[in-house]
Amino acid sequence: MNEQILAKRLKELRESMNLTQSQFGDLINVAQTTLSSYENGSKTPNIDTLYNIAIKCNISIDWLCGLSDIHKTKNFSSYSDIFNLIVNICKSIHIDIEEYHYSQDEYDMSLIVKNPILNEFLTKWSKVKAIYDDKTIDADTYEIVVKSLIDKYTTDTLKYDNFVIDDMHFSFLSNE
């Protein structure tokens, strides 16, 4: 964890919420003087405090600690959050981008997944999403089924795989 980034992001978070140090300290259950020491980098909050901040402020601990540029793990606040996520996924899994032109002004873009585990998940998820979209199941059931699908892949760890593009070698993570 980079303490300078953590200090900067804590202050940035507090200021984005338009709170004083005292108000933010009350929110996260720390004294104003403790928060001040976090923001100036002379102290580092423990994991329980970081977790508390993440939950109460609806932000990602990874962002807070400087491990990610994505502020939130759910309910993205801007296209930038989504774009950062896509770029980071493409750093981990081999995904091609294809463009289909219909006319000069009309075209579609597609992400082509080259990972069999991700393809398997996407196939299963698309079936569940289809029955949710046609209102065969409600939102609560959809969330439970999707969580169950995701949980099945907890033990599937990513492994490096090499491939070649235009005579340049790249290493991407893959389960193959």
Results as ranks from 00 to 15, higher is better:
Asp62Ala: 04
Ser36Asn: 14
His71Gly: 05
Ile70His: 02
Asn2Trp: 00
Glu15Met: 13
Ala139Ser: 14
Ser68His: 09
Ile59Thr: 00
Thr157Asn: 10
His94Trp: 06
Leu122Asp: 02
Leu10Glu: 01
Asp166Gln: 12
Asp81Lys: 05
Glu143Ser: 15
Ala54His: 00
Asn175Leu: 01
Glu12Met: 08
Thr157Trp: 02
Thr123Glu: 15
Thr155His: 07
Ser22Thr: 15
Asp166His: 05
Val145Leu: 13
Ser16His: 08
Glu12Pro: 02
Asn29Leu: 12
Leu10Ile: 10
Leu35Met: 04
Ala139Tyr: 15
Met168Gln: 14
Leu35Arg: 01
Ile82His: 09
Asp140Glu: 15
Trp63His: 06
Glu15Asp: 15
Met17Glu: 15
Thr154Met: 00
Ser78Trp: 10
Thr34Ser: 06
Ile93Leu: 03
Ile97Trp: 07
Tyr38Pro: 09
Lys74Phe: 13
Thr34Asp: 02
His71Ala: 08
Ile28Val: 14
Ile131Met: 15
Asp48Trp: 03
Ser126Asn: 13
Thr154Arg: 09
Ile70Cys: 06
Leu149Met: 04
Ser60Cys: 03
Asn162Trp: 08
Gln21Thr: 13
Lys74Ile: 14
Lys74Thr: 15
Lys114Ser: 08
Gln23Ala: 15
Ile70Tyr: 04
Tyr132Ile: 06
Tyr100Trp: 04
Ile86Leu: 15
Asp81Ile: 07
